[in-house]
Design a protein around this nucleic acid. Structure first.
Lengths: 198, 198
DNA sequence: TATAAGTAAATAAACATTTACTTATAATTG
DNA sequence: CAATTATAAGTAAATGTTTATTTACTTATA
C-alpha cells in the first residue's frame, strides 16, 4: 500500500491558509488550492470529505487547536489573577503576530456562519475550548478578586481587545512605525486587568 | 425617461445583507441575489459597477454610514468621560442588536481583505470615520482623566468588547435565557471605563 | 501483488457579466 | 392638453468562465 505523502498534506493546509489570509475565504477554490499546492484536486478529496469539511478541520484542528495550545503554554490555574492574565495575553500576542494566516482564519470564525456553527458545536461537545481559563476565572470570582460575571462576558472583556490589537499590529506592519509593541500590549493588559478587579 | 424604482434598489441592498448574514459572504452570488430580490441580474449592474463595487458600497455607505450615525446620536464631545462612553456604548448596542444583518457585515469588514482595504481607504480619505470620538478622547487625555495611548489602541480597549458582547447577544437569541441584557452591557461599560481612568 | 495514494481530464452546475430587447415616464411637440 | 418621442430603467436569456466534485486510470510500497 502506497503511503501518504505528509508534505502534500501539509502543503494543502498551509496554502489554503495563505489564500484565505491574502485573498479571503470567498476567493478560495478547490482547483486554485490544488494548483497552488502542486496537487491534483482529487488528492484534497482523499484527505477531506468536501470543501466545508476542509474549512472546518482547518479552522478547528489546525488553527484553534494550535492557538489554544500556544495560549495555555506555561499557564497555570493557580497563578494569581494578574500573572495569569498577563501570561495568556503575552502567549496570545506572540502566537498571533507570528502566525498571520492563522489569525486571519480566526477572524473569519467570527463572521462566517459555517465556521461559527462549527465552533459552537465544538465548544459544546468538548465542554469548553478554554476550560482551564474558565476554572481560573471562577476561582478568582470566588476569592473576591474580580467582579462576578458570566464566563462569556468575562471572556469578551478580557480578550477581545487583544484580537483588535493584533489587527492593528498587522495594519501597522507596512507603515514606518509599529505602535503595537510588546510594551504597548502589556500596558493594555494592565488596563483590562484593572477594569475587572474588585 | 423611466424613473428608478427605489423599492428595487432597497430590495437589492436588504436581501444582499440577508444572504450575507444567513449564508455568509462566500455564498452570495449575483444570480442568487437577483432571484431573491425579484430583479434581473442586469438591474444590479445598473446600480453597481460589479460585485466588488456592490459589496464595498453596501459596507461603507449602507452599513458603516448608518452605524456611525446611530452611535453618535445625541453624543457630544463636551460630555464627561463616563457619560460620553455610556452614550456611545448604549447607542452601539441598541443599533447592532436591532440590525443583525448590518452587524454581520461589520464582522466581515474585519476578516475580508476586500472590505478591510476599502475601510482603510475610506478612513484615510475622510480623515476619521469617528472623528468626534477621536477629539473626545484627546480632550480627556489632556485633562488627565484617562491614560494616554494612541487613538487606535484606545478604540480597541473601549469598543472591541462591545462587538463581542453583541456576538454573544445573537448567540443567546435562540437559547432560553438572554444573558446579554441592557443592564449587563451597562455593567461591562463600567468595567471598560474603570480600566481607562487614571 | 494487493491496495490505498495519487494523477489528468471530464462533468454538470453555478458563476459574473453581457447582449438584445422591452417598458415606463418626463420632456417635447402638435 | 392630449399625443409623441427620447431615453434611462428594466427584463429574459445567453455568454464564456470557474466552480465543486467525480471518473478512469497510474503509481509507490507494505
Amino acid at each position: 500500500m502506497r503511503p501518504k505523502n505528509l508534505e502534500k498534506e501539509q502543503a494543502i493546509r498551509t496554502i489554503a491558509l495563505d489564500i484565505i489570509a491574502n485573498e479571503g475565504l470567498e476567493n478560495l477554490s478547490m482547483q486554485k488550492l490544488a494548483k497552488a499546492a502542486n496537487v491534483s484536486p482529487r488528492t484534497i478529496y482523499i484527505k477531506y470529505e468536501d470543501k466545508d469539511d476542509l474549512l472546518i478541520k482547518l479552522f478547528i484542528t489546525e488553527v484553534l487547536g494550535a492557538y489554544e495550545a500556544a495560549v495555555l503554554k506555561d499557564f497555570n490555574e493557580e497563578m494569581d489573577f494578574e500573572t495569569g492574565v498577563k501570561k495568556l495575553w503575552n502567549n496570545g500576542f506572540q502566537y498571533l503576530k507570528n502566525n498571520r494566516t492563522h489569525f486571519a482564519l480566526i477572524l473569519y470564525g467570527k463572521s462566517s456562519p459555517l465556521l461559527n456553527k462549527a465552533y459552537q458545536k465544538q465548544n459544546i461537545r468538548q465542554g469548553q475550548f478554554f476550560a482551564p481559563i474558565h476554572r481560573f476565572m471562577e476561582t478568582k470570582v470566588k476569592e473576591g478578586i474580580i467582579i462576578d460575571l458570566p464566563f462569556d462576558v468575562q471572556r469578551a472583556l478580557l480578550f477581545s481587545p487583544l484580537l483588535d490589537l493584533v489587527n492593528e499590529y498587522f495594519d501597522h506592519a507596512d507603515r514606518p512605525v509599529q505602535i503595537i509593541t510588546d510594551e504597548m500590549v502589556n500596558t493594555c493588559c494592565d488596563v483590562v486587568i484593572k477594569g475587572m478587579m474588585k
